[in-house]
Amino acid sequence: MKRREAREKAVQTLFQLDNTEMSIEEAIPYIMERPIDPFYESLVKGTTEHRDEVDEALASKLEKWSLDRLPKIERTILRLAVYELLYHEDVPHKVILNEAVELCKEFGDEKSGRFVNGVLSKFEEK
C-alpha cells in the first residue's frame, strides 16, 4: 500500500473513532482489510495514543479557533498531520503539508486545503 492510500484510510478510521464509540481494534478492520499496512496502523494508533499532545500542539497554532469549533474532517486531517510532524521525523515537513492538503481535496471542501495549509505552515520545519 502506498503512503497516500494509508493516510486516506487513516483519516477515515480516525474520523470514525472521533464520531462513534468504536475502539481502535473495532475501527481498523472496519476500514482496512488484512493484512494491515504497518504505516497505516502506526498513523491510527499513534494519532490516537498521542492525541492529547497533538491537540495541545495544534491548539497553540490555531488563531481565533478552538479545536471544538473546527469542522470534523479538518480537525481529523490536522491531527493526523500534526502527529506525523511531531513523531515521524523521517517524513519531510513539506511532504506532510502536501499530503494534508491533498486529503482536504479528497474529503473536505474548497476552503479546507487553504485552512489546513495555513495552520500546518506555522509548525517549524525540523
Results as ranks from 00 to 15, higher is better:
Met1Gln: 12
Met1Gly: 15
Met1Cys: 02
Lys2Cys: 03
Lys2Asp: 11
Arg3Asn: 14
Glu5Phe: 13
Glu5Met: 14
Glu5Ser: 12
Ala6Gly: 08
Ala6Asn: 03
Ala6Val: 09
Lys9Asn: 04
Leu14Met: 08
Leu14Tyr: 02
Gln16Val: 13
Asn19Pro: 04
Asn19Ile: 12
Thr20Lys: 04
Glu21Thr: 05
Met22Tyr: 10
Ser23Glu: 10
Glu25Cys: 04
Pro29Gln: 00
Pro29Ile: 02
Pro29Arg: 06
Pro29His: 05
Pro29Leu: 03
Tyr30Ile: 12
Ile31Leu: 04
Met32Tyr: 12
Glu33Gln: 11
Arg34Ser: 12
Pro35His: 11
Asp37Leu: 02
Pro38Ala: 12
Phe39Asn: 05
Phe39Arg: 08
Phe39Val: 13
Phe39Trp: 07
Tyr40Ala: 08
Glu41Met: 09
Glu41Phe: 01
Val44His: 06
Val44Gly: 00
Gly46His: 10
Gly46Ile: 11
Gly46Lys: 13
Thr47Ser: 14
Thr47Pro: 09
Thr48Ala: 11
Glu49Gly: 00
His50Lys: 15
His50Asn: 09
His50Val: 03
Arg51Ala: 09
Asp52Glu: 15
Asp52Ala: 12
Asp52Ile: 14
Asp52Gly: 05
Asp52Pro: 01
Glu53Met: 05
Glu53Ile: 03
Glu53Pro: 01
Asp55Gly: 06
Asp55Arg: 02
Ala57Ser: 14
Ala57Asp: 03
Ala57Pro: 00
Leu58Trp: 00
Ser60Leu: 10
Ser60Glu: 14
Lys61Leu: 05
Leu62Pro: 06
Glu63Asn: 14
Lys64Phe: 09
Leu67Ser: 04
Leu67Phe: 13
Asp68His: 12
Asp68Tyr: 15
Asp68Arg: 15
Arg69Trp: 02
Arg69Asn: 13
Arg69Ile: 00
Leu70Met: 08
Leu70Gly: 11
Lys72Phe: 06
Ile73Thr: 11
Glu74Ile: 08
Glu74Ala: 04
Thr76Met: 07
Leu78Asp: 02
Arg79His: 06
Ala81Trp: 05
Val82Leu: 10
Glu84Ala: 09
Leu86His: 05
Tyr87Thr: 09
Tyr87Ile: 13
His88Gly: 00
His88Gln: 12
Asp90Met: 09
Pro92Ile: 04
Pro92Phe: 06
Ile96Gln: 13
Leu97Gly: 00
Leu97Ala: 03
Glu99His: 08
Ala100Ile: 05
Val101Leu: 07
Glu102Ile: 06
Glu102Cys: 10
Glu102Asn: 06
Leu103Cys: 10
Cys104Trp: 00
Cys104His: 04
Cys104Glu: 02
Cys104Ser: 03
Lys105Ala: 08
Lys105Trp: 15
Lys105Arg: 15
Gly108Lys: 04
Gly108Leu: 01
Gly108Pro: 02
Gly108Val: 04
Asp109Gln: 10
Ser112Lys: 04
Arg114Thr: 09
Arg114Ile: 13
Arg114Cys: 07
Phe115Arg: 13
Val116Ala: 03
Val116Leu: 12
Gly118Phe: 00
Val119Pro: 12
Val119Gly: 01
Ser121Met: 12
Ser121Asp: 09
Glu124Arg: 05
Glu125Trp: 05
Lys126Val: 11
